[in-house]
Design a protein around this nucleic acid. Sequence first.
DNA 1: TCCGGAGTTTGATACAACGCAACGTTCGGC
DNA 2: GCCGAACGTTGCGTTGTATCAAACTCCGGA
Lengths: 231, 231
Amino acid sequence: MPKLDESLLADLPPFSLLERSQIREILDRAVSRRYEEGTAIFREGHDADRFFLLLDGYLRVVRSTPGGDQVIVLHISPGQLFGIAPALQRDTYPATSIAAAESIALSWPVSLWSEFTARYPGFASESYKTLGQRLGQIQETLTEMATQAVEKRVACALLRMVNQSGRKTGEGIEIAFPVTRQNISDMTGTTLHTVSRLLSAWQKDGIVSSTRKHIVVTDPHRLVVLSGVQG
Amino acid sequence: MPKLDESLLADLPPFSLLERSQIREILDRAVSRRYEEGTAIFREGHDADRFFLLLDGYLRVVRSTPGGDQVIVLHISPGQLFGIAPALQRDTYPATSIAAAESIALSWPVSLWSEFTARYPGFASESYKTLGQRLGQIQETLTEMATQAVEKRVACALLRMVNQSGRKTGEGIEIAFPVTRQNISDMTGTTLHTVSRLLSAWQKDGIVSSTRKHIVVTDPHRLVVLSGVQG
DNA sequence: TCCGGAGTTTGATACAACGCAACGTTCGGC
DNA sequence: GCCGAACGTTGCGTTGTATCAAACTCCGGA
């Protein structure tokens, strides 16, 4: 359990515009909890009774089809709000969130959402801003899915994870949380077989280096070329 | 040019919670404009300086890839707000909106957004609600695109348009605005050739009846079966 | 009335990706 | 240190869908 200290929140976007005393107030009303890898924080369709802030770890936000297939809609990294369905007047969560690694999150009852946004204008504007960014991201993923071939989609998915969580190592940039072939196929709408083949080929070419649930991008530039984004 | 009368807005979701005098105030500050079929209301990347309400007609909201392909992200029908990037603290529009049929829209400068939401709580909550619905829709389209085969995606796209704009005719339910094969392929991430083949086959089976830019669903139930949604 | 463009239909061909299947590897628990 | 489960790899046959190509239909304007 981390110490609940003002400095935890002071640098985070939703709170960076607030004063220390205000942060203290917000923090005093939060519940902190730890989630093991693979655990659900909340599930699609359940009552949206709380909203959350990820302090440590990484999450996958997943939607399921009636047929049982699942799709990873986006990832959440530390410092981001999630499960903010109440901000959009929803009474159930539209997706499931799963801890991709051991994670720690704060949460508040939804009743506090309107209180926070009313009392702290900086909180409201920053929250809606991240919401807008997230909407834009999903639209971008959608257009990518609709227009690009599988190879490019997988390359883009890797780059997105690297951008969000990449940290330098000796051999390249490493994705900070566990990722399986199946996970990548759930992000890109393909099969784990195809992903496995692609990663094998890229490993042979020295572009990535992957162990079991762990991926290091050794040649980001070549991956960008493969992803087909032209600047 | 329509008469700008309170009754225009009184029944619409964003305004239904307001009083007549308040609606009058809002209306007095709106600009009304007509858009011919194929005209852009605003374009992706341009300064988001106004927000809009569609009074009559239908719009396509389109995102383009660097490679020149385009994807129809969603449709707007009468009574819906659109171009509400300012609500999410965006300074440019994230997509382009095109009139799918001759359309009429009101618009206001973004500076009024904060004024409206502050002064009329009902307007704010309803606006964020539609935003939440739209986010959910896009997530659903994304999962559909990632998991379903082309035939099901096309069936779903037709059903979505029917739900949004369908009106009864002698032979079935008709989509209220012009739709080309190319349009459908832009919604489903396939080619106009494949869409043409599918529609021909369905027409032979008596499920749809399509003329040039005009589609009537004659057997909605069979189309639902084809779409593969199980209730 | 004729022309041209926009939209549609249809056929033939090619290949990327899926589905299935079998085997290999790593990891964690007992 | 062994075992079983989870995850990954690889091969092969198949098929859905894109691609290329060509012709057709409708509609509006000159």
